[in-house]
Amino acid sequence: MNKEFLNGLIVFGIGILAYLGSSGFERKGVAVSENPALYPQLLALVLCLFGITLVVQGVVRREASKTRKNDEHRGVQRTMFVVCSLVGYAVGIYLFGFILPSLLFMFIVPLQLGASRKTALLVSAPLSIALYVVFFLLFKVPIPHGVLFG
């Protein structure tokens, strides 16, 4: 299955879901311009049309999907690790506030990305503190304090 074909199916699916989803807020018996579903339904139909065109392009071109090389696979693994760490980091700052999860995040992730233990250790604390100072003290922007600490 090539990229265009798959993308087309996804776009078509989004269009169909958006159209069906709009029936929940459709108002019948009012002026056309006052129907909140009118505009999203038009967009959904256009997306369906684009999706079909992509599917047709995919069928016509029939380019085989490339096999993934080893280093590419490692790259994706590295990326997925960072995505998971980011999710953990977001949950961490929600629960425990900014400082502790930031220290951990900025130590573990660089280590996994190839930095030496010394560099990761030396950098995590100053970087966390620098972000705290810049956001909270200099720009007076709110930072999370953690629900567990009120």
Partner: peptide, 15 residues
């Protein structure tokens, strides 16, 4: 070091 820079930017994105 790019590993440190990328991590710092990700933290910046979250905050």
């Amino acid at each position: 070091p790019r590993a440190v820079l990328n991590t710092g930017i990700l933290s910046l994105c979250v905050i």
